[in-house]
Every structure is written in structure tokens, then in C-alpha cells.
Simulated assay, not measured.
Amino acid sequence: MTSSPDIDREDRRRAFLAQAGLADARRAPLPGDASTRRYERLTTPSGTTLMLMDQAPSAESPPADPSWDEARRRAEGWNATARLSAGRIEAFAAVAAHLKGLGLSAPEIVALDPESGLAVLEDFGEAVFARVIEAGADPRDLYFAAIEALARLHAAGPPPEVLDGPGGPWPVQDYDTVALQAGADLFVEWLPKLEPGLAFDAAAIEAWRAAWLPVVEAGAAGASVMAHRDYHAENLIWLAERAGPARAGMIDFQDAVRAHPAWDLHSLLQDARRDVAPELEAAALDRYFALRPETDREAFMRAYAGLAALNEARILGVFARLIVRDGKPRYAAFMPRMWDHLRRNLETRGLEAVARWFAEHAPGEIGR
């Protein structure tokens, strides 16, 4: 009789924890998200808490090798096409070390087995930005700390092409035209599967890509800083006892790439999961430009609106896929917010071609 993969995986977790001196730790699984990772909070007999991060290396298609061309990336699957890390533990460990080297808050790696996809991390606690704000904290304090962290990350300039992390080297690749356009294309691929009234023929898809081309090219050309890539109030932990930008504890940054500095800003300030008041968005942007006075604000804001719109189209496609393919209907609740952000961004000068595409091919959606 052969053992099940789940039992084999549990045996590996137990062996890893024993080797790390944590065999007696009490284990409490955390709720899952949209990824293939799982987390457990570990409580040692002394009361110290840690986090077990579990990402089987074989759970997803492979990440992109920097030497692969577009055809090879597409043949290898979504992670290679979009330049995602496939959740690799060594990616998380390498990015964490880089962030910590800049004085930013990433979890300490306590134990690591990259071949098995297991790590024990410092526990930042449960003060997720979104929950702290819901409990009555002034959102300006938290968002300004997150902005200060981004300003420091951007001031460091381009990250090394290869990070030397505790789990081994990890490449930092550009969020290039292939990855950006593939993200936008999730909209035309998955929205018709969620909304039967939508149908995009070959001509419509060709027009879609032509409309986005200036945004995609500008985003790729401006890839000059490390981007967390999923920087928002559910992936930031409030570390009130720390100072300045270190108060923003970062998690889930394993998909970091070299990208336009606007990317993480719009992820934070035009959040899919919670409303950010327009006046707070404006104040946070003012804070960023005050910390980065050398930035050409007008050009930056054109890129900000364009990349935000592209990301909102991408997220609408992701949510449609999660609902249709993965049976996760709760993501439908987030979609109206994304439509609102998209409508607002499409009023920006330079996005007229994209706005015309929506008016012609999805007028009912964009007009909601």
C-alpha cells in the first residue's frame, strides 16, 4: 500500500520541525488564501510564537529561468510567463534578506529547507494593517509608514540581478512587456467565462493589446526598483514598536521583480480588498513625492494611472478565474471596487484608446 501525498508531506513537516528543535511546538493552521502556500502558527513550550511556511516546490508550474525567451516562457506555463516565483521558499528567503539589509521589516528566517519548500519564520503577529484600521487606528499613520518603506526601497535603486539569499541565489527579473501584457490578457480570457454576455473575438483581442501597448512599454521601460508586487493592507503587518519605515512589516513578497516604482504604490492605494479614501490616496502620494523630490511627478502619475488601470483589468481577470475555475465565489464581492478604480483611471490623459475599447466592447461593465 502506498502512502498518500498528504501523509508524506506531513511526515516531512514533522521531520523539518524536529530538526529545527521545534518538535514540541503546538501547531495551529492559518486560513488559506488564493495561493498554494499554507501557514501554521507555532507556539513553543516557552510561549514564543513562530510561523511555519509550507510551499511544496512541485505544487505549481516552474518559475521563469532568466535565459528563457517568450516562447519558452509561455510553453512552461503561467508562472514563467508572468515571472512569478511559483512560491519558492528560496525566493522568499532571498528577498527577505535584501529587504532587511535596507532596514525594512521582513521576517527573520529561523530555519530553512528550500528543497522541501519549508521554512520557519519570525512571527510578526496578527496586527494586519486592514484589521488594525478596522479596529479604529488612524489609517494615515499606517499608510504613511508603508509609503516611507516604499520610498526607502526605491531610493536603493535597482536591485541586484541575482540576490544571494540564505536558501541560495535567486534572480530578480524585470516585470517586462510579456508579463505585463499577459496579466492584462487575463481580463479578455476570463471575464467572458464569468459574464456570458461578453464575447471578444480575435479582432477585439488584437485591439485590446494595441490599446494597452503604450502602458505596457512604459511600464517595462521604467522597471528600475524592486517591487513587492502584492503590496496592500492585507500583506502588511503593523509593528508599532519599531520606528519609521520599519513599522510596516512585509510578508508575501516572494514574487518580487524589478518594476516601475508606481507598481507598489497603486497596489497599496487602489486596493482590491478595501476602500482607501481619495483624500488619503492623495495625501499618501504627496508623502511619497516629498520623500522622493527628484521624481518627475507628472510623468510618474501618468504611469501610475496607466499601470493601475492595467492591474485592475488583470485583477478582474484573476477574480473571474478564481470564481469560475476554482469555485471561490467570495471574490465577486471585490470586483465592483476594481471597476470603480478602473473607470477613474481611464479618465487620465493617455488612456483614451483603452477607454474607447471598453466603451465599444464592454460598455455595460465599465458603465456600472
Rank of each mutant, 00 (worst) to 15 (best):
S3R: 14
S4A: 11
I7G: 11
R9S: 01
E10M: 12
Q19F: 09
A20N: 00
A28G: 12
L30K: 10
L30T: 12
P31I: 03
G32R: 15
R38I: 05
M51K: 11
Q55D: 03
Q55S: 10
Q55E: 05
A59V: 13
E60W: 02
E70L: 04
A71N: 15
R74V: 05
G87H: 00
I89T: 14
E90W: 10
E90V: 09
A91H: 00
F92L: 15
A93Q: 04
A94E: 01
A97F: 03
L99D: 07
E108M: 07
A111D: 03
G117W: 04
A119Y: 07
R140F: 14
Y143F: 13
F144V: 02
F144A: 00
A149P: 03
L150Y: 07
A151I: 01
A155W: 01
A155V: 03
G167E: 00
V172G: 07
A182R: 08
F187D: 07
A199W: 07
F200M: 05
D201V: 07
E206S: 13
W208T: 15
W212L: 15
L213R: 14
E217W: 12
A221G: 00
V225Q: 04
H232R: 02
L236E: 00
I237W: 05
W238M: 03
L239E: 04
G244M: 14
G244D: 13
R247N: 09
A248D: 12
I251C: 10
V257P: 06
P261Q: 00
A262Q: 05
W263Q: 15
L269E: 00
D271V: 12
R274L: 09
A290F: 00
R292L: 10
E294S: 13
E294R: 09
D296K: 06
G306Q: 09
A313Q: 04
L322Q: 05
D326Y: 09
P329G: 08
A332K: 01
R337M: 10
W339P: 00
R343Q: 09
R344G: 02
V354Q: 05
R356D: 15
A359N: 01
E365N: 11
R368F: 07
